[in-house]
Amino acid sequence: MAVVFERTKGLRPVSTHYCPGCTHGIIHRLTAEALEELGVLDRAIGVAPVGCSVLAYNYFNCDMQEAAHGRAPAVATGIKRVLPDKFVFTYQGDGDLASIGTAEVVHAAHRGENISIVFVNNAIYGMTGGQMAPTTLAGQRTTTSPLGRDPLHAGYPIRIAEMLAMIPGAAFIERVSVDSPANVRKAKKAIKRAFEIQLEGKGFSLVEVLSTCPTNWGIEPPLALKWLRENMIPYYPLGNFRDKTKEEATDE
């Protein structure tokens, strides 16, 4: 008998505060497994955001630093520049990275900082009670858009992966989803590749992970995954938007 799946050492043996069915748990696990498999747990420094995942520092089994709202890429830049031997990653939600912290992430990418970012997009502000986020889909009902988001009034949802892929300093940008076991396995590969890019010193890497918020969407967890598949993936297409290592290979 062989154990084919057990709890990763990259996560501390504690229960998380996340709501039942919240895919933050899956994304935490994928990030921790990637750290463990690459053997960087003992020299990894994570930067936690503000939002639902603000307590990420209680769960990852590596050194963690809390940043002010949206400023995780700026804090990570400082840590990486002072301690270039360390592996530095940030774990941010869409309320953190895509709204108040957009400037930080755009400039970190433009500077080509050698850091990795796990960006969790669930199209809503979870922690504060389900308000409309920049990533909320057109027509999606939230507590601050009870009739559905009206793009004429509230603008269009922001596609972070596509935007960052245009930036010359960005080395690796990919969007994945955790709506099915197959997609979870793909997400793991993408996160691991993004981390390898940093270890190879190639520069800025970001993985956008489409996630659910069963509580604030008001949908049962399994149906929330279906909602993600049917509504979010058409607007936020999955795939790799930039991989500098491949571009270099084709140039030669």
């Binding site: 008998m1 062989a2 154990v3 057990e6 709890r7 990763t8 979870v184 396995r185």
Partner: peptide, 11 residues
């Protein structure tokens, strides 16, 4: 793979 709370061990 889908468990958000790492409840399950598989052999």
């Amino acid at each position: 793979m889908m468990c958000p709370d790492q409840v399950i061990t598989v052999e």
